[in-house]
Each structure stands twice: as C-alpha cells, then as structure tokens.
Design a protein around this nucleic acid. Structure first.
Lengths: 124, 124
DNA sequence: TACGAACTTGGACGTGATCCAAGGTCCTCC
DNA sequence: GGAGGACCTTGGATCACGTCCAAGTTCGTA
C-alpha cells in the first residue's frame, strides 16, 4: 500500500459519485501532485479486480468507477450530460431470460441501464 | 441516395448480425472499392438517427450496428469473444423502476445486457 | 550496506471515432 | 447548354481514452 494507492482509494471513497479515470486523476493530483496517470489506471485496475470498485461503461466516453461494489444495483444515466445514479429496480431480470433464449451461453451477469434526461438538463 | 449509401444499407440488410463500423466498411469495400471510412461512419450515423439501425456498445471495443431496429429486444454478449445475440426476456423492466428511484429524470429507455460465455468459447 | 521485488513515472503507442478542407456529383433555373 | 449551389464523398489529420514499456525509485530483508 503506497501513498499513491491510498490517495486513489481515498478519492473513490470520499465521493459517492461515478468518476472517470481522468477525474480520479485530477482529484488525486490535488492531494499528491506528482501522481501519474499510469498509476491511477493501474490502481483502478487493481481495485476493480479485487472487487472493491466496479467499472461502468454507460456511454462511448470514458469508463466510470463505481465505489458501491458491494451492493447489487443498476444505473440510470442522463443521455445529455452523462450523470449516473444508482437504482434498484424491482424484479429479477436474470430469471426473466428463458433457457430457450440462452443459446447455450453460460449466463453469469445482467446489467440494466435506464436512460433519460436528468432534472438539470431538462431545466436547461 | 448515393451509391455509397445504398451499399452500406445493403451490407446491414444482408446479414442479420451485429457488425462493427470497420466490418461494415470492409464489406462495403468489397462491393464498391473506393468507398471511404468517413462515408461509412456518416451513413451509419444517419441510419441511426433515422431509427433504421441501432447502435450497440456492449464492450469497450468498437460500436456495433444492429439492423433489427424495429422490434424491441435486448442483448446477450459473450464476455470472451464479443459475439452478440438478440434476446427477448420476459417482464417489463421499464415498469420495474419505481418513481422513487427516478430522481426526477425523464426516463425514456431501458437496455438490458446479459453477459456470459458462448458455447464456442466454452468449448475452446 | 547490498540486493531484489514491487511500484511509479512519463512518454510512446494503439484503436476507434470524428473532423475538416478540398474536390466531385447532380439538380435547378436561366 | 451552362452557371450556381446544395449536398455528398474523400483521405488524411486529429482527438480521446486507454495501454504499454523501459527506466528509475522505494522499501523490506538480511
């Protein structure tokens, strides 16, 4: 556990929002000016493979990192500004996919993404 | 409607698979050798905004284009090779998101992505 | 103090997509 | 037929995001 890793972990832990790697880097630099982008990417990659953080790619732009890895949830995304909210829809989408629609796949995961326009963007 | 656009439309219409822009370009070149990548991107963009074709970004690699735009469906993706199948789960995920979880968003769309390993990759 | 393992750095590189200026095609109107 | 203009196409430059890599640094152990 180096100073760099601690800083990255703190950034994610401090704000329960969905930051891009660049945003994480920017905030990390504020705390530890000489931290490099590569290290931020490395550390994020490790946190993801440790299961501490989730990667979310809701659009074609940058991946975002979700510190809320321990509680299953889905996402609601603003199509205009990219803002992301965690949501907990009812039902069990995994059970909604009949065997006849699985084509022999071993299905391990399901991701539900709601899209819309957030209040801010609606107002603007 | 130029020759170039017709070729792109034919490529998508001919094969009911999910091609990347580069694959579309490669097949278009086979029919019309001097067509450029930029034109393929332009045309795909137009087809998408006309609602004739759907963009699917299931992974961090290239976008894929889905000619099956007129029938609502979701996707089952192989996490290893990227293969995509259209699926039709039961239930109505849109109705599963309670108002209390909408945070003032105008929710217009929901996308369900199942992930797993396809039979080919399981065998390999 | 010497050594090695692991981490960090910054710059180069790769991929997919988009942008843009220049040129081409085609229609319309005189 | 010819001029003008709208629209399309081209290919190369550029961008964004992410990854790779060789070199340097730090730190624990003996």
């Amino acid at each position: 556990m180096t100073a760099q890793r601690r800083v990255v972990a703190e950034v994610l832990d401090g704000e329960h929002v969905h930051l891009t790697a660049d945003e994480v880097h920017a905030r990390a630099v504020a705390k530890l000016p000489e931290i490099s982008r590569a290290t931020v990417y490395n550390t994020l990659g490790e946190l993801v493979s440790l299961g501490e953080v989730l990667e979310v790619s809701t659009d074609r732009r940058a991946k975002r990192y979700d510190p809320n890895a321990h509680q299953p949830h889905h996402h609601l995304v603003c199509a205009r500004c990219g803002a992301i909210k965690d949501v907990h829809p009812m039902g069990n989408p995994m059970a909604d996919l009949p065997d006849s629609e699985r084509f022999g796949f071993t299905v391990s995961d399901v991701e539900v993404t709601y899209r819309g326009i957030c209040p801010n963007c609606t107002a603007a």
